[in-house]
Amino acid sequence: MTRLAVEERTLTVLRWLVIAFLLVITVFPFYYMLVLSFVPIEQLLLHPSRIYVTAGEFTLGTYHQVLASVQDGGQGFAGFLRNSAEVAVATVVVSLVVSIPGAYAIARLRFFARRQVSALFLAVYMFPAIVLAIPLFVAFAKLGLVESLVGLTIVYVVLTVPVSIHMLRQYFETIPESIEEAAALDGAGRIATMLRITLPLAIPSIMSTGLYVFMIAWNEFLFALLLLTPRRDLWTVSLGLAQLSNGIEVPKTVLMAGSVILTVPIVLLYGLAERALTEGLTTGADKG
């Protein structure tokens, strides 16, 4: 056999092996999470090598326990879910309201220091959270914004605005200026043009930006840890799961139910809008 034939044959086999391997490593952890969330802890300790749920041991008790409030003997994840949802939705709304005019201005209008403003956003966006964490933590302590969901939302808005502006700006730049000029000739002012012409065209991009921001806010951990740790009633789902999994009091399979609850909204959103999110992930370069 020639080298060409040998290589082609081995690579065909290798390719399928690689695909199978990648599927196993990406999907199995989530499958394992789901399986363990339906099993009482005693069963896991009894049959640790089992990676499926038998009808006999199947339970929803883990979900009951993790969702119920602390007074009812649960872990209070229903409350954490509400906190996470409030913070994430507020972050998306404020971040978009602030970013849309900002991105439009950077894409369209030549104003004083436009380049510097653009560079500032890029720098903030590349700046790692841990370096911001100390001064922000100290400043928020001074301003009395620790232990509050409003404080956390402010941090998230500031962390996501540069990404949103970057994503939206790229989209605004693809809308031909001639459309807006036509509107201007018809007597529409700048704001009217933006609201009636440019924004409707940008809806898909606004949606994907919003989804991406939601994902960042929902998944965020460090600032929730720094700002909210002392107040259990304010914990987000991420923080709650991290705090409780450090201890030994809560059965691990109950916490598995908690991590399913944390993961499902993101996977659902991702399933609904895969293209929008992947677009966000590539144009929004990286944060995380």
Binding site: F30, S259, T263, G288
Partner: peptide, 12 residues
């Protein structure tokens, strides 16, 4: 499926 590890919450 390939993107799951990246989009899922880090804590989970």
């Amino acid at each position: 499926a390939m993107l799951l590890p990246y989009v899922a919450p880090v804590v989970a």
